[in-house]
Each structure stands twice: as C-alpha cells, then as structure tokens.
C-alpha cells in the first residue's frame, strides 16, 4: 500500500493544478459568456478564408 503515499499526493497536486488553471481561465474572460462561443464555430462558412479573424 505504500504506493498510495506517492499516488495520493499526485492526485492532490493535479487537482491543485486544475484549480489554478481554472482560476486563470476565469480571470481571462473565458467564462463571462457561456452561451455564444459554442455557436460561433458553426457560423463560419467552411470554404471562406478569413485571414484577419481575431481569436476569440
């Protein structure tokens, strides 16, 4: 069972990393509008080149 002493801290570290990544994303406007971005990719015409499209 000693392997638990390695695995459990790893899961805790992973969870901590996920929380930090999520906090970063929240602070960088990623969650301010949850309704529109999901539709935006569908709206681009597939064969139309849009070189100057700003990244969302």
């Amino acid at each position: 069972m000693n392997i638990l002493l390695v695995l459990i801290p790893i899961t805790v570290l992973l969870a901590l990393g996920a929380c930090i990544a999520f906090f970063w994303a929240v602070d960088h406007d990623q969650f301010d509008d949850l309704d529109t971005p999901k539709l935006l990719p569908l709206l681009d015409p597939p064969d139309d080149a849009k070189p100057e499209d700003p990244p969302a």
Binding site: A15, A18, C19, V26, D27
Partner: peptide
Amino acid sequence: ESRSALKRLIVAGFGAMQ
C-alpha cells in the same frame, strides 16, 4: 460577482470529488 461564484463552485466541485 459571477467570477467569484464560479471559482467557489469549482473549488467545491474538485474538493468534493477528492
């Protein structure tokens, strides 16, 4: 307000799972 609520929610979610 919505940002801090979201952060609290996600911390609670991760914590609860673990």
